[in-house]
Design a protein around this nucleic acid. Structure first.
Lengths: 109, 109
DNA sequence: CCATCGCATTGACATATGTCGATACGTAAG
DNA sequence: CTTACGTATCGACATATGTCAATGCGATGG
């Protein structure tokens, strides 16, 4: 199972170098919106520090229901920040580090 | 006039190094939420590329009403990303680069 | 085949957010 | 003082978002 992000590449303009056009601003705000939630940030940090994590191991540390976890992983995957792999009946998640790096760079890194 | 951010320092933990605790996640999500809007991103990029910008010069390029601009500058200022200075009846804005750098670092920079 | 398990989707709900017109506030100019 | 101007706040509205119970779907195991 491969989630396909619906966000365009953030590659080119840095926030601090030149005024963002509307398209770039919208696409960057999409990724930032995916990050702008405490539960998703903690989810992302948990996955990042374990390399790979199964969905089933996220409910307990985050204190949220299974549908809520599923919703948040979907949001992060659509933003290109999480990548999923289905093994048997489990779904494993890992962080797309390059995507995170793109975000940092778009923020003027 | 000095806007005081209501967000705590983001200094310490990086997203990718260890699981974020709830407080860190909430405070980081606050700043990211301020960034997660196309109008605010463009606003920020305009201020950044002009060093300083008057509120009155933001309505036209952003195509938003004066109350809306005022709202967005307030959100960015409360997030610590914009700093204001009142001169006569005009308010001038500049970007707090160090705050942006904090965000990048919190994102694993 | 049937029961079970992990995950996704749906529907509903409360809350948060972006937007603008109307209005209030402060400062500057006459 | 009065007027005009730039900005902030308020009230209202439509839309977006986070959450969960209920349910659907696929794969596994008996």
């Amino acid at each position: 199972m491969i989630e396909v992000g619906d966000e365009a590449a953030l590659c080119c303009p840095s926030l601090t170098s030149a005024p963002l056009d509307e398209g770039a601003a919208t696409s960057l705000s999409g990724v930032l919106g995916a990050l702008a939630d405490p539960v998703r940030l903690r989810l992302l940090s948990i996955v990042a520090s374990h390399q790979e994590v199964c969905s089933c191991d996220l409910e307990a540390p985050l204190g949220k229901s299974q549908p809520t976890i599923s919703h948040h992983t979907k949001v992060l995957a659509e933003a290109g920040l999480l990548v999923s792999e289905k093994r048997g009946r489990w779904v494993w998640w890992r962080v797309d580090e390059s995507r995170l790096a793109e975000v940092r760079r778009a923020l003027g890194g």
